[in-house]
Nucleic acid binder design. Sequence first.
DNA 1: CAAAAAAGTTTGACTACTCAAACTTTAATG
DNA 2: CATTAAAGTTTGAGTAGTCAAACTTTTTTG
Lengths: 220, 220
Amino acid sequence: MATETVENYIKALYALCRESPSGEAGVARLAQELSVTKGTATSMIKRLSLARLVKAEPYSGIALTAKGNKIALDVMRRHRVIETFLVRILKLDWADVHEEAERLEHALSPRILDRLDHFLGRPSTDPHGDPIPDAAGNVSEARSKPLAKCRARERVCIVRIKDQNRAFLKFVADSGFMPGVNLVVQSVSPQSASLVVRAARGEPVTLSQIAAAKILVKVI
Amino acid sequence: MATETVENYIKALYALCRESPSGEAGVARLAQELSVTKGTATSMIKRLSLARLVKAEPYSGIALTAKGNKIALDVMRRHRVIETFLVRILKLDWADVHEEAERLEHALSPRILDRLDHFLGRPSTDPHGDPIPDAAGNVSEARSKPLAKCRARERVCIVRIKDQNRAFLKFVADSGFMPGVNLVVQSVSPQSASLVVRAARGEPVTLSQIAAAKILVKVI
DNA sequence: CAAAAAAGTTTGACTACTCAAACTTTAATG
DNA sequence: CATTAAAGTTTGAGTAGTCAAACTTTTTTG
């Protein structure tokens, strides 16, 4: 079994590879993400490479192998099932569960994971709308687009909030936004890089393009 | 915060001090309990001593300090709340939860612990009848005596099973014995070091004195 | 394209934990 | 009570993970 540290590296690598156009991660970003020095990240990459969890040549990009990918999906599954449990059953604050799940995800046995998943009714997404991979590692991402790409007068439904930052989640939740909430885009102003949206029974809220890019919606 | 390893040493020391008449633990038993060598245990004791979690002189007994005791009770609280959750909510097998809780207990934040405890209705004992310390570290042990000390024809109620060994718990559960179950002691034979007991609607079961010593009961 | 910045690597050292094996002290027993 | 067994300690070494700092390679940019 991968250690807790290894799982965290793999998870971070998965996310970095996703968001990079080349599909490869770099040591600098990885180190930053995990709050370690570049040297530490380099030596860990060497170990992961030796364990065939990543493919990496010196001074070039890092990619997960199939084996590494499997681990990443498994950790994500555990993480998201726990988040769902914390919000739905233990009523923890939506914005806080990420860091809590971060510690618990490494201690969950397959047996408990399955029981928990079953208890929750095999949820397909976590409270932020992130898809939960199934036990075999299949992820079904709902079709969606960033709120930032919407036009004025569009009516949309929030599908997912793509950021785990507590402050951001707190702001989003305080604005009454979470997956399942319907929005109307009232106006879009490219010059100020912002847009104004309104939830069903709520005040209009101004969002920067950056914030709106992290809110995924589907048109209704 | 104490590391996972430190928490495990402290927990084992707590148990050993309890069961020793002198109230002090020894390195050999400690090492055995944690599946490490005596040398490893000695060096850890030195570190715990430096951190003021235990009081220990070379070649003499080990005792927990107040600070160490606090940690032990805290770990036990987490462990037992988790066990209760696993059995009551996730329907895990009574005999299996100990090792599962063993891993989870180190990953539970105070916040989650409290929510879980609240969700379960602030239970006072875990599924084996072991008392759950409250958040302040107070333990209320129910008055009880070992089944092994009972006389023939006594009617008793099982209060607690004092052993976490899976095989033993499985045997006990298969015999229909768990906390809350009423028993009648049918006969006691000192020469064969065993006794025969019967649950309300069950077959008579023969228990060795050793097994019966681990089953705590109260007279009804 | 040369200089500077950024990214990546290496080295030496440190903490936490572990073992094997030699050793010392204490306890048990013929 | 002398010997042996058990308990406890020390030493030397190894793995996992980390940092600081010097260094090399690649990328960016004036």
